[in-house]
Design a protein around this nucleic acid. Sequence first.
DNA 1: TCAAAAGTGTTCTGGATACACCCATGA
DNA 2: TCATGGGTGTATCCAGAACACTTTTGA
Lengths: 234, 234
Amino acid sequence: MRRHPVVHPRIVAPSRSKTLRSPLVAVDVVIFTIADGELQALLVQLKGGPFAERWAFPGGLVPVGEAPEATATRELLTQTGIHDVYLEQLRSFGDPRRDPNAHVVSIAYFALVSDKGESQGNSKYTRLGWFPVPRLPSLAYDHNAIAAYALERLRSKLEYTNIVYSLLPSEFTLGELQEVYEIILGRWLDRRNFRKKILSLSLLRPLHRQRRGAHRPAQLYRFTRRTPMTIEML
Amino acid sequence: MRRHPVVHPRIVAPSRSKTLRSPLVAVDVVIFTIADGELQALLVQLKGGPFAERWAFPGGLVPVGEAPEATATRELLTQTGIHDVYLEQLRSFGDPRRDPNAHVVSIAYFALVSDKGESQGNSKYTRLGWFPVPRLPSLAYDHNAIAAYALERLRSKLEYTNIVYSLLPSEFTLGELQEVYEIILGRWLDRRNFRKKILSLSLLRPLHRQRRGAHRPAQLYRFTRRTPMTIEML
DNA sequence: TCAAAAGTGTTCTGGATACACCCATGA
DNA sequence: TCATGGGTGTATCCAGAACACTTTTGA
């Protein structure tokens, strides 16, 4: 019926017609990183509104004329200082009661960063905090549901894409790579099978340097391509 | 920054503030079925606007207070008469230029029906038509991109979920089931291997009836559960 | 010398693939 | 009798899983 101008005119300017009222559009970004042997997510603390003091994922309203993904990128930069990250749309959450103030349809994204460093930036308006994903507090809006969905997506994409590269620094050992998998998937992997499989994919280039520590030195590797590809990893 | 009321107030009523302008929200539904040995999709013909006469997926604006999925269900019923179908969110498409009239963020869904019959309903406002997916015309908005995305999703979900049940009538033969897979995946499957695999999943219950034709009678089957489950089908 | 992580190969098993012939029916 | 799809079993291959001991270093 939308296609019939009399019934659902898509053409009239929004401000002219009461029947054209539609929910607001927002984005929310779940930013994951690995730190302290855990999967962590970045939260901001709300200052006002019904969820004052509560934590939530960074995000914001999408203005007319801006692509939602651009909003996500922009809010990420202004709220957390993070830029140039892997960013992927999850899905939208549109329940009218998810925000008590107004009907806001939120498009959720997830982002992956290799370390917390970049997020020290512009925190002058908001308190930022990294939280271990297994023990997230009770979040504002429906953000706990978004978190669960994001985690599920991360787990499955880890298995059939190479996006794990965005959780690692440019140089890393096979042990560190395996640890990322173990933390996110929540299960131990056999080291020999893991190395066999990963090395057979020729995604990694061994360097001429090693990581030293209180143990036998470990070969350092680099990803040959840091660009998303779908490939059976496990 | 959205969390800071002064900068991005989420609280003010939409009509009060210019800064709160956000795109409109719509849904679009890609409805698939199998007919005449092909995957087909249901389109409606637009009557006015810059895409007059062009075909598009049924859909409509989401009103304030209604969950987008409810809008999708409702528009499906009013525009096509289709109800009680498998419906799944794909993702949202938000490019500001996808609709020349206004910035409309569309949440795309895909639906599966087992036959065209249900769509004869209320076509008094719009012309409806089923089109073979491999030969879709040039659609309105960005609907060709939505179609491509929907097809991709359908193909992958066919492999790891049981949603194929929603493309089949309540009783069917293994040959018909296999044909659905072959049409959608676009490749031939070995009959013996297919039957072995499918029957090993105990998703099907053989009936005491057979389908007759100009050939050896074929055993009829029924799905034991017509509810979405994730399971490795192929 | 000890703790801690790195490095390495083989066996087994199960699932996927490839493949060809006979059967029952309606026309 | 013929065309059409239905029904069936076996051999092969490969990837995944299971599994233990030695090495190198810093402390």
